[in-house]
């Protein structure tokens, strides 16, 4: 564990807490894509299958439970909680996200580090996470401007994988034979998809107005 990795996990945790804060306290999911949340629930469900078979550390297990619990409860809130569901923008959140799942599964079956059940699903979760933000970014462009909490949520979610890239660079230079092209390329694609969001998000700070 290095500082970049810890910063990445804390940023990821912060993004989840900001979204839960928004949904749980003001009972609103305005501007949030349910489809991205559903994809993230699948990402964590397929990435943390080994949560019961291989124990790494209390921290690792705790964080996996937090990410699993929060992603599924956010989906539940947005689908079934009356007050929250009412604020969900169904008409605008129309990205065909199921069309992302199958290609990621096929790609994981073709390109992986080891051909085992756990490994293929783990690789699938990497590919799926790389594109999971697309429905949210499309919704963002349709929704005129978004509230600060949603903007902060997306900013933190995009930043966490960028910090992971710094962690991989650090590990590459400090650990012999630390080479994982699949993880690196998936992480890079994921972070690059946020590029224009980051651009407008920083403009907001300079301009001092909402995220247009």
């Amino acid at each position: 564990m290095n500082i970049f990795r810890l910063a990445g996990d804390m940023t990821h945790l912060a993004s989840v807490l900001v979204l839960l804060l928004k949904i749980h306290t003001i009972k609103s999911c305005a501007g949030v894509s349910l489809r991205t949340q559903e994809l993230y629930a699948i990402v964590f469900a397929t990435r943390y299958l080994d949560i019961f078979t291989s124990f790494v550390s209390v921290y690792n297990t705790f964080m996996k439970l937090v990410f699993l619990g929060s992603s599924f409860s956010i989906v539940w809130y947005m689908r079934y909680h009356k007050a929250v569901h009412r604020t969900y923008d169904r008409e605008q959140d129309t990205f065909r996200h199921w069309f992302l799942v199958l290609p990621c599964l096929v790609l994981a079956l073709l390109i992986h580090e080891k051909f085992t059940f756990l490994e293929v699903l783990w690789t699938f979760s990497l590919y799926l996470e790389a594109v999971a933000i697309l429905p949210q970014l499309v919704l963002l462009q349709r929704t005129r401007n978004i509230d600060n909490l949603t903007g902060q949520y997306i900013f933190l979610l995009g930043g966490y994988r960028g910090l992971y890239i710094l962690n991989w660079i650090y590990r590459y230079f400090t650990e012999p034979h630390f080479v994982h092209w699949i993880t690196w390329i998936a992480g890079l694609v994921q972070t690059l998809l946020y590029a224009d969001f980051f651009y407008y998000y920083f403009l907001r700070f300079i301009g001092g107005r909402g995220v247009e």
Partner: peptide, 10 residues
């Protein structure tokens, strides 16, 4: 991969 040195990552 899960067995290798990435398994401690989230």
């Amino acid at each position: 991969s899960t067995e290798s040195d990435l398994k401690d990552e989230l």
